[in-house]
Design a protein around this nucleic acid. Structure first.
Lengths: 217, 217
DNA sequence: TCTTTTTGTGAAATAGACTTCACAGAAACC
DNA sequence: GGTTTCTGTGAAGTCTATTTCACAAAAAGA
């Protein structure tokens, strides 16, 4: 399991180091910065998943910093911390791109809860946009390819021309095209005698397609 | 629940009527023909899901009949019945397009088992090629659309521009395009104040996607 | 060996999905 | 009222997926 990298930006050294300590004590990998300007540079070197930034700082404040980061890295989560907390302040922070808002002084657990919650949200979002998901889903979105999976699931193993005839497709190169696609996605494989069959991944996907068809209807 | 239509082709009136009786007694809708030629005509009027055809008949036999049918209607399942059963005979029948093979005399239950088995196979195949499935899967195969679903799943309800900003997409018309697609597939809907939210179908699909992402990784 | 069937490749044509751009009405804001 | 932001449409262009076609090596049959 890889640890999540978190960036902490605060000009107050005591507070900054306190936060770093809490986070590192909980197995997060931390990058600390004393200003938003420094942070902008460091982000380019290693992109964190989450940023904790103070609102009031000399130079660029958190409020100005957030839109800049969100523009370049829309998926980074930002938690803003602030000393003088008001409703207006909180609303303004959210509008500027903060994903969460923490008023000083906060407890150790308040910080950790906020951090974990935001990392969970991030994980949730990312799960649905994984590249593997992309490949698999677009492969499954073609009806001919799904028919091929269905046939192979029923028959276990089939020769190229048998699949073609079974589906009633006259142009065999068309079937070839789709089989190639299925092979590329690792849904189907070919053994030594050239027969096609489902991979274990392919078997799972057929299961899931049936699940889906039940959900749809 | 709609009943499956089965076509029975046999020149022997007694046997034909016996089969019809068994099938109708089990709530199938039956079309009986005394020759393959008649059957070819009747198929055009109502397409059965399954055909039970005798091999030996005056005029066109089952062996010649099957390729003709399979060519026009590759999805119809065909059970061949035959009096003089040999291995070679069975193999030849399967090669000509039979999906199953029954030797005379057969028991009532043997017939019903074969019929049900073949209808199950048909159902299995068809589940994976439903048009709804097509629409849903191709909609889900786009990463931006999946991100929109994720965001709506987290936030519950969102305005158009909030979604656009959340995803960090500069061209709002692009988001509009994908939202339209999601609406067309009934995954997302819009309430009176123009906010977008997941439909119940959309909620199911987000569930499904998470299941899928676990299986993939 | 000669022929046919199977299995396959790659290029060109077509269709479909996605993006971009120019514009516009509606609503919110000043 | 005038201005800005939100929400949306439609056309044109671009990129990707799919189909079709021409061809060919390998395997199976005759």
């Amino acid at each position: 399991m890889t640890t999540d990298t978190i960036m902490v930006i605060d000009d107050d050294q005591d507070l900054r180091e306190g936060i770093v300590e809490i986070l590192e004590g909980n197995n997060f990998s931390v990058i600390a910065c004393e200003s938003a300007e420094k942070a902008m540079q460091k982000i380019r070197i290693e992109v964190p998943r989450l940023i904790i930034v103070d609102n009031m700082m000399p130079g660029m404040g958190g409020m100005a910093f957030m839109p800049l980061v969100k523009n370049d890295y829309p998926r980074i989560k930002i938690i803003m911390i602030t000393a003088f907390s008001t409703v207006d302040n909180a609303v303004a922070a959210m509008k500027s791109g903060a994903d969460d808002y923490l008023a000083k002084p906060f407890k150790r657990d308040e910080l950790l809860v906020a951090v974990r919650r935001n990392l969970e949200v991030l994980k949730f979002e990312q799960q649905l946009s994984e590249p593997d998901m992309d490949e698999t889903l677009s492969s499954l979105s073609n009806p001919i390819r799904r028919q091929i999976l269905a046939v192979l699931s029923l028959e276990g193993e089939m020769r190229f021309m048998d699949i073609t005839r079974y589906l009633g497709i006259s142009d065999h190169t068309k079937v070839n095209f789709h089989l190639k696609n299925l092979k590329a996605c690792n849904l189907v494989s070919q053994d030594r005698d050239k027969s096609y069959c489902l991979t274990s991944h392919g078997v799972k996907m057929v299961d899931y397609l049936h699940l889906l068809s039940q959900k749809i209807s």
